[in-house]
Design a protein around this nucleic acid. Structure first.
Length: 262
DNA sequence: ATGGTAGACGCTCTA
C-alpha cells in the first residue's frame, strides 16, 4: 500500500497550528514529521490534527526549544527516542508502521555561527550529535527504515545558492558535509530526494532575514528524506512544497515529500 | 564586514 511522508520544520507548532492544518488538508500526506515544535507534548495542538484524521501521533517536546512530532493517518507505535550527544534536547523520535517500516524524525542542532568547536561549543555539539548518530546506526544496522528531518546541513553544491560563498558558513562547511556523509553511510541510507531529483538547484529553507526571499532565492536544502536500500527502490514523487514558504506568517522551512509503494 | 528577521520566555537565548 503506497503512503506519502512529509517532513517540515514548523518553527513553533502552536503559532503555526493553522499552517499545519492547511498542509494536512490540502496535501494530505499519510505521515507528517514536524521539527522545532517549541513546546512540551502536552502543549502541542494534537487534538486539532486528530480532528483532521491524524489520529496517531508520537512526539517528544520541551519548553521553548526543539520538539519533534510524527502525525499519522496510519496506525503507528512509539519506537522510542535517543538523546544523541547527551544534550537533553527533544531532537529525535521514532515510530513504527504496521508494515514494519521504522520512521526516524530528526532535528539536528543548527550549530551556531562560527564553524569551529573551540570558539563555538554549539558547533562541537552538532558534530558530536552526528558522530553519535553514526555509532548508533553502525550498531543498529537499520532495515526498512526511513529517516527524515531538519539535518541542518546542505551537502551538495546544488543544495545551496552559492557553494563558494557558503564554504565557511555553518550548514555547508566541508567538515559538516563529510560528517553527514558518514552518517548516511553508517545506516546505508539512500538520499531519496536526490534519487528522485538528481539534477539542479533544490532548496527547502530560506532565511527570514532576506528582504524578498523568493526574488533573492538564496536557499539551502537542509531538510532531508533518506531510506535504507531495501525500500529505497519503492520511493518516488519527491518534491519540495516551496509555496508553503510564501504562506501567511510562514516557517522559514518548506515541507519535503516522498511517496513509498510498499 | 555586517546586519538583517523570527519565536519563546521573561529582560536573552536560539535559529
Amino acid at each position: 500500500m503506497p503512503f506519502t511522508i512529509a517532513t517540515w520544520n514548523i518553527n513553533s507548532v502552536r503559532l503555526r497550528e493553522g499552517l499545519v492544518a492547511k498542509l494536512l488538508t490540502d496535501e494530505a500526506p499519510d505521515i507528517l514529521c514536524l521539527q522545532e515544535c517549541k513546546a512540551p507534548v502536552d502543549k502541542m495542538p494534537l487534538q486539532a490534527f486528530a480532528a483532521l484524521g491524524y489520529t496517531h501521533c508520537v512526539a517528544r517536546g520541551q519548553k521553548g526549544y526543539n520538539g519533534v512530532a510524527i502525525l499519522s493517518k496510519l496506525p503507528i507505535e512509539d519506537a522510542g527516542d535517543r538523546d544523541f550527544a547527551t544534550l537533553g534536547h527533544a531532537r529525535h523520535v521514532a515510530a513504527r508502521l504496521e508494515n514494519g517500516v521504522t520512521i526516524h524524525n530528526f532535528y539536528v542542532p543548527a550549530g551556531g555561527d562560527i564553524p569551529d568547536r573551540e570558539q563555538n561549543p554549539k558547533f562541537g555539539q552538532k558534530l558530536d550529535f552526528l558522530t553519535d548518530m553514526q555509532h548508533w546506526f553502525a550498531a543498529e544496522r537499520p532495515h526498512k527504515a526511513i529517516l527524515v528531518g531538519d539535518l541542518n546541513i546542505a551537502p551538495r553544491e546544488d543544495d545551496v545558492w552559492s557553494h563558494k560563498q557558503l564554504l565557511k558558513i555553518v550548514s555547508h562547511t566541508p567538515i559538516e558535509v563529510e560528517q553527514l556523509g558518514r552518517t548516511q553511510e553508517a545506516g546505508r541510507f539512500v538520499d531519496i530526494t536526490r534519487q528522485d531529483i538528481p539534477q539542479g538547484l533544490l532548496y527547502s529553507w530560506w532565511s527570514y532575514r532576506a528582504a524578498d526571499w523568493d526574488a533573492a532565492d538564496k536557499g539551502r536544502r537542509l531538510d532531508h528524506v533518506w531510506a535504507t536500500p531495501d525500500i529505497a527502490g519503492a520511493a518516488h514523487s519527491s518534491r519540495v512544497l516551496r509555496d508553503a514558504r510564501g504562506w501567511e506568517q510562514p516557517s522559514d522551512h518548506a515541507p519535503v515529500f516522498a511517496t513509498f509503494d510498499l
